[in-house]
Design a protein around this nucleic acid. Sequence first.
DNA 1: CTGTTAGCGCATTCAT
DNA 2: ATGAATGCGCTAACAG
Lengths: 345, 345
Amino acid sequence: MTKPRASVTIRDVARRAGVSVATVSRYINKTGPVSKAVGERLDAVMEELHYVPHAAARKLATHKTFTIGLLLSDIGGDFFAPLLRGIEDVLASHGYDLLIASTRKPRRWHGKSLPVGPHNTDGILGFADSLDEDHLRRLMAQHFPLVLIHRTPPPDLPIPCVTIENKAAAHAMTSHLIEQHRRRRIVFLQGPPGEEDSHWREIGYRRALADHGIPFDPGLVMRGDFDRDVAFATIEAALRQGIAFDAVFAGDDESAEGVLAALHVHGIAVPEEIAVVGFDDQRMSPYLTPPLTTVRAPTEMVGRHAAQRLIELIRDGTTELMTLLPTQLVIRRSCGCPDRGGDDS
Amino acid sequence: MTKPRASVTIRDVARRAGVSVATVSRYINKTGPVSKAVGERLDAVMEELHYVPHAAARKLATHKTFTIGLLLSDIGGDFFAPLLRGIEDVLASHGYDLLIASTRKPRRWHGKSLPVGPHNTDGILGFADSLDEDHLRRLMAQHFPLVLIHRTPPPDLPIPCVTIENKAAAHAMTSHLIEQHRRRRIVFLQGPPGEEDSHWREIGYRRALADHGIPFDPGLVMRGDFDRDVAFATIEAALRQGIAFDAVFAGDDESAEGVLAALHVHGIAVPEEIAVVGFDDQRMSPYLTPPLTTVRAPTEMVGRHAAQRLIELIRDGTTELMTLLPTQLVIRRSCGCPDRGGDDS
DNA sequence: CTGTTAGCGCATTCAT
DNA sequence: ATGAATGCGCTAACAG
């Protein structure tokens, strides 16, 4: 076994193959003509030496990193797996690496410097409220490729974003509860303060109430934080306080799970006494008791589109500003509809 | 607004501050003495110019990337969020970046080249069966820092690994079902073929049966694949075939969810007629109907420890070979125990 | 088709 | 305490 040199470089390959480094580089990057014979020699030598180009050196010379950064406000939640999956898949298929960074307690980054940026990536994907407006403006001023996920940019900043149709779906869901199931006192469970998805879902909910002549009762809008525990506690409290309601539109499926549990503990029948619906259609949702009626959010697709937008932005310098992915109602048992005998996924 | 130079380099900072690049470098890396006055000048200039050292250049010069790679066999499953969270958190606190790569259809990488390695990272974290033995051997031959997660290395390869106590917990859980709830025909739902956790859990299950004088019935060991749908289908099939059983030890919580749903659909009472238990204690588990008795797997801790081990390996050249994290029974309702009135998390 | 050479941005001796 | 010079591994003109 030969003494394991720190690493084998392009020069080692060139020397061993009896050519210049330029030729090796050209061959590797297909950036110029190389005779077939030499090409084969190189393949053999590279294989023999286990040569792998040093990424940093290449990046330095090229000024392209072929890696993109993903900024998260917090890893956790069943939400991230499909999103990540979508992102990683399309990035990989285009030869890009994925650098991940997440905040802890505070939902956003504070100081001046972001963990990813022009110094180590070709572009960044910003999830929800992980970036504050200052960052957005600075990045734009530097003309650094950036696309937002589940968040729209400030009106004056032309930053591409990909998110989902929340309002229409929330409107449809609320209307379903009102029209099909005669519910009139529908609780709405909000997401974290300032969360954009939650905001639009609430708008849709309110609009549906108005469209059906049902007066809006602020007392029926409660905290859910997109969190099982918080939703559980909120519903328990509402029950104890004797607040009257005949349905709950949970901000997302995770909080719907908390709602279901709280009602179950109190011996309240779902959907007979109180109907419950969610938003997201996570993998667990068909398996809840009763199976959850919800809105399907194409989370993996959001990831795929976001990655695609960013790659276009990097390559072409431009891409669509707004990608709004459609959502659709998924009717199961928890709203009061009869069992349809199978799942529709 | 000044013409946005492609990027501001250390030379711009040096010039603006009237010092040499060496001084700037020394100051940034605290690698040598710099007068207080100059230090302050530099702080001001760097702030003013929004200077950020170019990662690739630094890496080239230093031969350290301060990046670690995470190899996944497949992103997805509620399992990854906490794992990732743990990994990302400790890496970030040590100044390391996280590069993620995942396989698609096949669970492992095939060809010679891995997406991460000595060319772009300082070490790699390999989850479960994402790496085959050839990769392991090559990486070891190159003395490249590597730690395995939820997987032990081949006997002759001294690769550090961090995983959890499966066997004892599975034994305890099975014994609980036998002793406390008089169950004797316990179905065991396996994980994906070759999955190491599943293997040990099954060993524990079998041992418990033997310890209680219950003959092992191969017909009670079925496929679960750690997947809700697969588990659902498996239990439905077993029911249709009239296979008699009074309990199900699902390989993990996700498959337990499928089991619960299948039994519910068939009008079978849990835990009265059939007891169900899982493994993992995922966030949704207390919210299932009935609340799931399971084994708590410290998944985020596994991530934290793995990252810690890798950092030690990189810095000190050595670390513990085996980190076995403890698990514990979490008794809730699905096994037949009475409600304890609150959650113990 | 192929070789020479000059950087890329930064860390690091070696002087001073 | 500070500066000048060299090189990390690779790409990209520019010659030939």
